[in-house]
Design a protein around this nucleic acid. Sequence first.
DNA 1: CAAGATTGAGACCTCAATCTTT
DNA 2: AAAGATTGAGGTCTCAATCTTG
Lengths: 164, 164
Amino acid sequence: VEEPDAASAQQAETLAGVSADDLAVLQHWRVLQSGFRRLTTLLLTDVEAKVGVAPSSLQVLCLLLEAPQRAAPMYQLAQTLGFSTAGATKVADRLTEAGLIERRTCPSDRRMVYATLTERGLEVATAGASALAEALAKRVIEPLGAGQFESISAAIGSLGSNVA
Amino acid sequence: VEEPDAASAQQAETLAGVSADDLAVLQHWRVLQSGFRRLTTLLLTDVEAKVGVAPSSLQVLCLLLEAPQRAAPMYQLAQTLGFSTAGATKVADRLTEAGLIERRTCPSDRRMVYATLTERGLEVATAGASALAEALAKRVIEPLGAGQFESISAAIGSLGSNVA
DNA sequence: CAAGATTGAGACCTCAATCTTT
DNA sequence: AAAGATTGAGGTCTCAATCTTG
């Protein structure tokens, strides 16, 4: 957008109006993002090798495994997945199709639909959870250490709360 | 989550064969993953509000902005995006359609196709890069501090290299 | 009307197959 | 034959609209 004409330019504008500091930040962000992506696909490849289950389905199964009654309403699935409610519906469709969950309408509030683990769903969920935990242990906790892993989780998890 | 029945139970198997340690790891992982997802969509929403450009397109533009001749071969796009080459082709299709990049075949090796920024693409890229850097500053660096941001980036970026 | 859930249309990416160039 | 890139088919998520219940 502009060119350094004065001697006092300080290299504030390196590439067409983007400062050197900004470029450094962007670079770190790119490393973080691609690293996270690689890591995620790596873990899911490990799990999918042992248990034939897709990424988002696995996430739902793990959630239900720890849920109060091994059941959770649809909008809660969407929330933890970071999906729209429409997306959660379709994940539930596939899990139902595969016979891993069942839908149950809540008696007290008949708008809500609870996704509940079937017997076979429970088996797959436990297998998947174990496989994922094992993969995490080898690929994340071993290289990084448990402390750093938890601190990173806490740090990233704390972000995104600020709306403004 | 469970009831303590025996005094010597040691809580080794809490939920159908998944240990308490594993559950803790999975919980941290879920926090990290959903936090990262929220953060990403938040940043991209900020950028898309100022510059109408989709996530992966923005990433390509930022890459080209720093590339040697503001040009990069397709397989390099795929690599930094973490996409298959087919995916990179389609991102390039959309950017070309929008008039932000141009394809140029390499004279020395006519198999390769270089994606190069157009004039308008350069404008959009700088605007997008600035907007993203600004969003990162407010939403990540301000809450976390530059040091922790860089260390997290380095830590996550170092993972995924181990194939075994 | 608001909240929860679902549906259909559309956008985005992957896999497998193909083409060109080396 | 191998590397780079493209194409077509298929799966996954989002947006907008709709339905039902509170």
